[in-house]
Design a binder for these strands. Structure first.
Length: 582
DNA sequence: GAGTTTGAAACT
DNA sequence: CAGTTTCAAACTC
């Protein structure tokens, strides 16, 4: 496409073919180019659209209007001027070059944003608001896009038919300054295909800005940035500072990914936070050499030079994430670890203070123990219930016989964990046990269903020999008794244990946080006098109303604090302890 | 909607 | 070519 453009602006073919649209092609897959005619063509009259890749192909204006000019634009990708809009597409002045220029500027993202409804349906073109440029400078989007102003809010507009002479002069002057002024700013990269990038997600497109952006404060994450506006990544052409518009940028990913991708408030917050960090802690206060971080440099370890700054950024980013719903947080791909593993910028990866405390096997073990708790509680409760039922039956038989009708509890659990066992004999619903009639809470049902997950079964298997739990056989209540009656009690027990474990985690986090804080003070007492009391341990703040951990779960702070190795949480000590406790 | 910020374009 | 100014869009309040 680049070479095919060769010259600058073509001859006025439109004058001889006023009602036709001429498309020149070389390669159908390449981008569309549009020839502009500033000779005074009006709508539908002198519309010449050039597709260098489609040479000698003539299509009707309507086709161009509706689709061709937006060809190769996949939904949210490169946004081109929308010729179907009522603004006029013009032809450039006669020039030597026979090959038509590509589409003009890539400004139109703003057009899209303001001219489309939220569902993406085109509504009406955006109108420029030029006041001082007479719409004869590239400041004017209409002029830059090669279209007449039509219904714009501009003042003293000369970008119209009535001022064709001055407009033509302006075009020539513009071309004199920059022969490529009306050529597209976004060029396809010779490497790879757009499809490949699109497949990579992120809404990425392969093209890059020809001149590159020069953003300083926006982090290239706002529409001030032409690259960002065009929905492309910054490239080596860019001379931006603190660029965050690169593929592995978490800030950028936060903008494009996540459940809150449409939440403009959040997007702005994320962008602002990223920018604030970029220009706040390291922005103008740091040497320019560090400010201009192109994507390539980001991959070269430049950012490692300032670990303090990076730490600050991570804290800020954590604040950002803490301010969004967990659903979004979970949607952020691989919080920090993934980035560390990826080829992203070599940022210092923040790790939770609990990262070394909570191990995978701990989680699995905890789950296993909770299951054991539940099982033991179920047995115990069922025994009690069975005994009481027998007594109740004796009493009832003396008064009136049982109806024998069975009541089937709703079974939301698709795995049918106890489709049979939750059948409750009505005879047991004698009013003496209200809890037996209590419907199973969704949480409990979910818990019981989840207990069938592989993480439970696989985790519990070796150490605690809980494989049998996976098939629920051992989870069936003894004596064939249903589970419904004891679910509430089971829930209470399991939740209590979970709560205790969480308390322990909180305690461990506090301990480690204090340790980290003291370490920071020791190593950087001169500068870090403003570190919070527990440093980054605030990521796991203790609940205000949370009482101190029960004595039996008190953490061996002496060991953990003295030991540089991270303290680890241990679930209740095995089945034996569980049984003893129950 | 007014005011501010931003960065490309224009200018020196 | 670098620095400054102008400009209009993007953004904030």
């Amino acid at each position: 496409m680049e070479k095919s453009e060769g010259g600058h602006f073509p001859t006025k073919k439109a004058e001889s073919e006023p009602a036709s649209v001429q498309v020149e092609t070389d390669n159908p897959a390449k981008k569309l180019a549009r020839q502009l005619d500033f000779t005074g063509g009006v709508l539908g009259q002198a519309l010449t659209v050039s597709l260098p890749e489609h040479a000698n192909q003539v299509i009707q204006p309507e086709v161009i209007k509706s689709s061709q000019l937006t060809v190769s634009m996949k939904s949210t990708q490169l946004i081109r001027p929308q010729p179907q809009l009522q603004q006029h597409i013009l032809l450039m002045p006669m020039q030597q070059a026979p090959v038509l220029p590509p589409l003009p500027l890539i400004r139109p993202l703003s057009r899209q944003s303001s001219s489309e409804a939220k569902d993406g349906t085109p509504k009406k073109p955006k109108q420029c608001n030029c006041k001082h440029s007479r719409c004869l400078k590239l400041y004017c989007e209409c002029f830059a896009s090669g279209i007449f102003c039509d219904g714009c809010n501009c003042a003293n507009c000369h970008n119209n038919v009535e001022n064709e002479a001055s407009r033509r002069e302006a075009v020539e002057a513009t071309l004199e300054r920059n022969p490529n002024a009306f050529r597209p700013k976004i060029a396809s990269s010779p490497h790879g295909t757009r499809e490949k990038r699109e497949e990579a997600g992120d809404g990425l497109v392969l093209p890059k800005h020809n001149k590159g952006c020069h953003c300083k404060k926006s982090g290239c994450l706002k529409k001030y940035c032409e690259c960002f506006q065009a929905n492309i990544l910054c490239s080596e052409n860019c001379k931006c500072m603190d660029c965050k518009n690169f593929e592995k940028s978490e800030e950028r990913q936060a903008l494009f990914h996540g459940d809150h991708a449409n939440n403009m408030a959040y997007l702005q917050q994320a962008a602002n936070a990223a920018i604030t960090d970029a220009i706040g802690s390291s922005g103008y206060g740091s040497p320019p050499v560090n400010k201009n971080r192109k994507p390539q440099e980001l991959f070269s370890g430049l950012m490692i030079k300032d670990p303090v700054h990076r730490l600050g950024q991570f804290q800020q980013e954590n604040q950002i994430k803490a301010s969004v719903p967990p659903s979004f947080l979970s949607s952020i791909p691989g919080p920090r670890v993934s980035n560390a593993a990826a080829l992203g910028p070599p940022k210092v990866t923040y790790r939770s203070l609990l990262a070394d405390i909570i191990q995978n096997h701990d989680i699995k073990e905890l789950c296993s123990v909770l299951i054991v708790y539940a099982q033991e509680a179920a047995k115990m409760l069922s025994d009690e219930k069975d005994a009481s039922l027998k007594q109740a039956k004796h009493h009832r038989k003396a008064s009136y016989p049982s109806s024998g009708v069975e009541k089937v509890m709703p079974d939301d659990c698709s795995t049918g964990i106890q489709a049979e066992s939750i059948r409750v004999d009505e005879s047991r619903l004698d009013g003496a046990d209200v809890s037996a009639e209590r419907p199973i809470s969704p949480g409990t049902l979910a818990l019981m269903c989840d207990e069938q997950d592989t993480i439970f079964t696989a985790a519990a298997a070796p150490p605690n020999d809980l494989t049998s739990l996976s098939n629920n056989k051992s989870f069936q209540l003894p004596h064939g008794q249903g589970m419904a009656e004891i679910y509430p009690e089971l829930e209470r027990i399991v939740l209590a244990q979970t709560r205790d474990c969480l308390k322990k985690l909180i305690t461990l986090g506090e301990i480690k946080g204090k340790k980290c804080s003291s370490m920071v003070r020791d190593t950087d007492s001169g500068r870090q006098n403003n570190v919070s009391s527990n440093g980054v341990a605030n990521t796991v703040p203790p609940p205000p109303s949370s009482p101190p951990p029960p004595p039996q779960q008190k953490v061996d702070s002496g060991t953990t604090a003295a030991n540089n190795a991270c303290p680890k949480v241990h679930p209740p000590d095995g089945n034996r302890d569980v049984k003893e406790k129950i």
